[in-house]
Design a protein around this nucleic acid. Sequence first.
DNA 1: ATGAAAGCGCTAACAA
DNA 2: TTGTTAGCGCTTTCAT
Lengths: 345, 345
Amino acid sequence: MTTGLERGAGSSAPRSEDVARLAGVSRKTVSRVLNNEPYVSDESRRRVLAAAEELGYRLNHAARALASGRTRSIGVVALATAGYGTASLLVGIEQAVRDAGYALRVVNTPDGDPQSIAGALESLLEQGVDGIVVSVPIVEGDVPLGVDVPVLFVGAPPAFTAARTLTVGVGAHELARAATEHLLDLGHSTVHHLAGPRRWYATKDRIEGWRAALAARGAHEPPVLNGDWSAASGYAAGLGLASDRLVTAVFAAGDEMAIGLIHGLRESGRRVPEDVSVVGFDGNPVFAYVTPPLTTVRQPFEAASSEGIRLLLHAIEKPDTELPPANDPPVELIVRGSTAPPPSL
Amino acid sequence: MTTGLERGAGSSAPRSEDVARLAGVSRKTVSRVLNNEPYVSDESRRRVLAAAEELGYRLNHAARALASGRTRSIGVVALATAGYGTASLLVGIEQAVRDAGYALRVVNTPDGDPQSIAGALESLLEQGVDGIVVSVPIVEGDVPLGVDVPVLFVGAPPAFTAARTLTVGVGAHELARAATEHLLDLGHSTVHHLAGPRRWYATKDRIEGWRAALAARGAHEPPVLNGDWSAASGYAAGLGLASDRLVTAVFAAGDEMAIGLIHGLRESGRRVPEDVSVVGFDGNPVFAYVTPPLTTVRQPFEAASSEGIRLLLHAIEKPDTELPPANDPPVELIVRGSTAPPPSL
DNA sequence: ATGAAAGCGCTAACAA
DNA sequence: TTGTTAGCGCTTTCAT
């Protein structure tokens, strides 16, 4: 009415102005309603909502981002391996992010190299995200980059400097310790450890938990074996360990390595759990149905992601406030059939 | 220099205007360089790039999206279950999308219900994506929604109407057929089938492949069993099947169900593969290390995603052109230890 | 409680 | 080959 322009012949998508006109209010009032801002009469709110509904109005996020400087989206740097752990974490993050009304941008990296991480971060920063989650068990090295949004590291300590860094653990240390103690409690004189790749932080964390459990009982600490998280690497380790009769208990840093390990052991004539006990790490439910069912510790992926996102959003939305305290995730040991007392007992 | 404004005390992020000024060209020329458009002298290009580098310039994607109407991002609707298949597909999609210079937005749905799908699509549409991938093995029902960007369905037929729908298969029919034929070739008189949930498209596809193989050999078609993809549901099915001595071969529609099935069978006193042969579906490498190692068919996730994204990008960038032909992914049967000739032979 | 005007940083259409 | 002029659709002041 007021402007000389008329809506084209039923073509392009409705804008907030169309909603405003239909509701008989200003564009700003529409904006207020859509953003749940105060100082809008119930009447106005109702009419705006009705008009939006009627028009099939869809807010343009790009325009909002440009005008407000915030995108209401958070980016995640994930590992391009389809493992149970990685995938569970991503699902948990997505859910927590969406529950908070944010959108998710994902970039994968083939590995945790500082170089790849830097590339992933750069791409996220360009897209414009309000915060970043680095769920990659980053390897050592520095990522030289001007990151001006809060960054959450899950399951690893901050690997580079950003405006604001946060951390949320998955309790790896405690879980590794619990796994090792379970074996020790069964009567094994010591526990061997099949770890992940050397440079990964996740590897170190678990090694330390295992080591702490051993030390607390005064048990001898055998040399660490390194796999690459795959079942194949666990299998190779199993073949190697089988000939050593002193090995009666092994804690593997991943379920899949544990499965491979058991296979290698059995193929070499060692029974599991009669001769050798094995504990895994992750908690993939499918391994309750293999023979023998795998004893393992469950990583609290959902808890860690919702807790982490909570912290991240706090840092985004109330930058100057104290961070809410981090709740430690529960330690969960799942005892199944792959562990038993040592043969001599 | 020319304008009265001076850069603030080293604060806000550089814009294209800053780059233009430093390079001594116009903003539009900067834009041309950044978008790899023609009609820019090498000299200008070089200087723009140098200036951008020097300033640490980062293109604002929100502004670009607003001005151009395109976001250079594609959205994916994925299933919120951290299975091997889902995760592999997502990794493949992410890679293909990034290789093409697009960004990825992910929304999960707890299930394949039309309702959930509609919500996921709506959220993607609001964020502004140039195309959408529905990687959910969608269930029946209609999704009433105005989707005006191309939509790619992977592993399922179009489940709702959009401006432009595309499909890329994962060869499920052929894979199911190959799995069934393998069992028949071994000498089994017929093959039972443990399928997924009834309403899923992925379930039907596999049932049809299985049925086709049976029909081609004139084999009797036993009633279909339905699980929910989980190992637990496979286990339950195994317990039920064990008492029927006529069952000597089972094709399970998922690796995890197969693992549960084998466990249920063995627990009931049926040996695998001596008494009953089992074939899985997916190709998760870890199951090469369980006892017995699982015979399975491998879903070509990487091939399907790169092929699918290729089609989708074509539809986005050259809407009026003929679609390039779809390459059929290869069928891959992996024979391991869970299959053998039937006991009587 | 509401509205008017002025941009956010970029690309599109046109002109030179 | 390059630059100029207008917006893209929203949120921000700052009035009212």
